[in-house]
Deep mutational scan, measured.
Amino acid sequence: MTFKLIINGKTLKGETTTEAVDAATAEKVLKQYANDNGIDGEWTYDDATKTFTVTE
Rank of each mutant, 00 (worst) to 15 (best):
E42G: 05
A26L: 02
D46R: 03
N8G: 05
T18L: 11
V21D: 11
T2H: 10
Q32V: 07
D47T: 07
G38P: 01
L30Q: 00
A23G: 05
T16P: 03
Q32W: 05
D36W: 09
I7S: 03
A24W: 12
T11F: 14
I39G: 02
N8E: 08
V21G: 10
T16Y: 15
E15S: 11
A24P: 09
T11S: 13
E56D: 09
F52E: 00
A34P: 01
L5Q: 01
K50D: 03
K13A: 08
I39K: 01
T51V: 06
E42T: 13
T11A: 09
A20G: 04
K50E: 03
E15L: 10
G41D: 01
T11R: 10
E27Y: 15
L12R: 10
T55M: 05
E27R: 09
T53K: 05
V29S: 08
T2M: 13
V54S: 02
A34S: 05
K4M: 09
G14F: 14
E15V: 12
V29P: 02
V21M: 14
I7V: 08
I7R: 02
V21S: 12
Y33L: 06
G38S: 07
T44D: 09
V54M: 05
E56N: 05
T18G: 02
I7H: 04
I6Y: 06
K10R: 13
A34I: 05
A34R: 01
E15Y: 14
T55P: 01
A34M: 07
E42Y: 12
Y45V: 01
N35I: 15
V54I: 09
A48Y: 10
E27K: 09
V29K: 10
A20T: 05
K13N: 09
L30H: 03
D40P: 05
T55R: 06
K28N: 07
E15Q: 11
A48K: 11
K10Y: 09
F3V: 03
T2D: 07
N8S: 07
K31E: 03
V21I: 14
A34G: 03
V21A: 14
N8Y: 12
F52V: 01
G9L: 15
A23M: 13
M1W: 13
A26Y: 00
T44A: 12
K28W: 08
D40R: 14
M1P: 13
E19W: 15
T16V: 15
T55E: 06
G9C: 11
E56Q: 10
K13E: 06
T55S: 08
W43Y: 02
E56I: 13
D40G: 08
V29W: 12
G41P: 01
A20F: 04
A48M: 11
G41H: 01
K13V: 10
T53W: 07
T25Y: 06
D46P: 00
N8L: 13
A26W: 01
K4Y: 14
I6W: 04
K4V: 12
V54F: 03
G14D: 10
K31V: 06
T16F: 15
N35V: 15
N35C: 12
G41K: 01
E19S: 11
Y45T: 00
N37C: 13
G9R: 05
K31C: 05
G38T: 04
V21C: 12
L30A: 02
T25S: 11
T49V: 06
G9A: 09
A23P: 09
N37E: 08
A23K: 14
T55W: 12
T11G: 09
A23H: 09
T44Y: 09
V54T: 03
T51E: 05
N37P: 01
T51A: 05
K10V: 13
K4W: 11
W43H: 00
T18F: 11
T51C: 06
V54W: 02
W43V: 02
K50I: 03
T17Q: 11
V54D: 00
G41T: 01
V29D: 06
L30R: 00
I39N: 02
T53C: 06
G9H: 09
D47I: 09
L5W: 03
T53P: 00
D46L: 04
D40L: 14
A34D: 00
V54H: 01
D22F: 03
N8P: 03
E19M: 14
T44M: 09
D36I: 09
G38A: 07
Y33K: 03
T44G: 05
A24I: 11
D47G: 08
K28Y: 09
E19K: 13
E15I: 15
I6F: 06
W43C: 02
F52Q: 00
Y33E: 03
V21Q: 12
T25Q: 13
Y45I: 01
K50H: 13
G41F: 03
E56K: 04
D46T: 05
G9S: 11
D47Q: 10
L5S: 01
T11E: 09
T2W: 12
I7M: 10
F3G: 02
T44E: 09
Q32Y: 04
D47L: 06
L5K: 00
V29Y: 13
T53V: 08
E42H: 12
D22A: 03
G38H: 10
T51R: 03
N8Q: 10
D40Y: 15
E42L: 14
G38F: 07
F52L: 02
A34N: 03
V21N: 11
I6M: 06
T53D: 02
T49Q: 07
F52S: 00
L30C: 04
E27H: 10
G9Q: 06
D36P: 01
I39Q: 02
K4D: 03
I6L: 08
L12S: 10
A20W: 02
N35A: 15
T25K: 07
E15K: 06
K31Q: 07
G14R: 12
L12W: 15
N8V: 14
A34F: 03
T18Q: 04
K50M: 09
D22Q: 03
Y45P: 00
I6S: 04
V54E: 00
T18M: 10
A26I: 02
N37Q: 13
E27G: 06
Q32T: 07
Y45G: 00
I7C: 05
V54Q: 01
T2S: 09
E15T: 13
